Structures are given as C-alpha cells and as structure tokens.
Amino acid sequence: MSDGTKHIAVIGIGSGDPDQLTLGAVKAMRSTDVFFVLEKGEEKSSLTRLRRTMLAEHVPGPHRVVEAEDPWRDRAQGSRGGYADAVHDWRRRRADICERLIREELAPGQRGAFLVWGDPSLYDSTLAVLEEITARGNVTFTYDVVPGVSSVSTLAARHRVGLNRVGRPIHITPGRRLAETVGNDDGDVIVMLDAHESFRQFAGGGTWIYWGAYLGTPDEILISGPVEEVAEDIRRARAAARAEHGWIMDTYLLRPCGDA
C-alpha cells in the first residue's frame, strides 16, 4: 500500500475443491505479496500442497510463500472449562507465530494473506488471532476478510438438500455440545468437529443424517440415511479414512426423518 501500511487479507478458499474459489478470493490472492501458511504436520501435508496448487493456478505474478509450524494443541481436555483454556492457550501461541511473521516477513506497504479453509467466520481461529495481535500493539497492520464456501454449504450441495425448512431455525454446534440438543425439535442440527461420532445417540430416534468427510476434495465420502441404519457404515468409513490419511474432517446434518 502506498502509505507504507502493512495489510493482511484473510481469504476463504472453500472446503477443498479448487473450483470453489470465488472471484473475490482470486482477486485478493493476485494482489498479495506474501502468503503465510501454518503447517499442520506431515499427516496434513496434502492441505499445504492444495494451497500451493491454488496459488500456482491463480497467482501468476511474483509472490512469496512463508511457512511456519502450527503450534501443538492439547485435545485431551474433557471439561468445558478445560477445553476453553486449551483453545485460548493454543490461540495465544498461534498469535505469537503470526505476529512474528507479519513483523519480520511483510515489508511496509506490502500485502500478506492467510488462506483459510471454508469460510473464515465459521469455526476458524484466524480472525481471533489477528484481533489478539492487534490488541497487543506490537505490530501495526490493517486487515479485511474475503468470505469463502463453507463445508456446511458444500455438504448440503453434495447431498442436494436445503439446510433450512420453512419457518424453522438451523443449529450449528461442535460435536462435543451435541448432547445439549437432544429433545430439541425446533430445527435441524449441523454438527462440526465431532471426533466421537456423537450422532449415535440419535439412533432409533427417527433422525436422518447427511454425512460427509473431506468435502470438496478427491477423497470426499458421502453417506446418508436414518441414523440407526447408517451409523455403522459411517463408523467404518471414518476408521478406514483415518487409517489411510492419518486425519479426518467431517461434517453432518441431522434432521427428523419425516422432514428429510
């Protein structure tokens, strides 16, 4: 930027399909000088390769890619308070890394970017990390957000279903809070970040599930049907996929069978 201000773009790049990049995302990428990528280990190296493929295809001009290791996160905390503390600690250490990258790798007047899976506003920490860095006051920059296609939108599209029903809400929850929705008949439930197959508690309750893993990627898996009929299929698919790839990202929609 001409006034010497550093600028950061937080760019949603969709859930994995390169075709999900919006025109706005491509324009933002083409005006970026430095892309910051936080590596998540060898198991998820395919995600870094996919980002580089997108850059090679859509950013013909000169640019740099700066990689750093994403900090370890304690995922063993079971209580709500312990989980929140672990997340805040992880975000603080992530902010330390991102602050250093912006300070040391981005020159005055340059534009940097973080490429975020799905949409930056839904279950992603990048905006919270930038807010923490801004509050510290150690480095000055401006930032904006380019929305992306979320895994929730991709899930609905792949199953060819609408997320909403007339006059009824949609609940979005992490899997660890799904039990709190049991008995709630005022809306359907989108579940993300479920490491424990919490949908099993709905077996026999007249609930339909639309499940998807690795949405938008060549490894995409889709299963749908009454929970009691497909729960075991999903369990086997998750186990096989995790064994093959070392990690899994899945999302699902729960809906009363009579309204499926």
Results as ranks from 00 to 15, higher is better:
1 M>T: 14
5 T>G: 14
8 I>L: 15
14 G>S: 05
17 D>F: 10
18 P>K: 11
20 Q>I: 00
21 L>Y: 08
27 K>N: 10
30 R>T: 13
30 R>S: 12
37 V>S: 11
37 V>L: 15
38 L>R: 08
39 E>G: 10
41 G>C: 12
42 E>H: 06
45 S>I: 03
52 R>L: 07
53 T>Q: 15
55 L>Q: 09
68 A>D: 11
70 D>K: 07
73 R>P: 00
73 R>E: 12
80 R>W: 12
84 A>S: 12
87 V>M: 08
90 W>A: 14
96 D>Q: 03
99 E>G: 06
104 E>L: 13
104 E>H: 15
107 A>R: 15
119 D>L: 09
120 P>C: 00
121 S>W: 11
124 D>P: 07
127 L>M: 08
136 R>C: 12
137 G>E: 09
138 N>W: 01
138 N>I: 01
149 V>G: 01
149 V>Q: 03
153 S>T: 10
158 R>A: 07
159 H>C: 10
171 H>I: 01
172 I>R: 03
175 G>Q: 07
175 G>N: 09
178 L>I: 06
179 A>N: 08
181 T>S: 12
182 V>Q: 14
185 D>W: 05
189 V>G: 02
194 D>H: 05
194 D>V: 04
197 E>P: 00
199 F>C: 02
208 W>R: 10
209 I>T: 06
209 I>C: 05
211 W>I: 00
218 P>N: 14
220 E>W: 06
228 E>R: 11
231 A>R: 07
233 D>T: 03
236 R>S: 13
236 R>D: 09
249 M>R: 14
253 L>S: 11
256 P>Q: 09
256 P>Y: 06
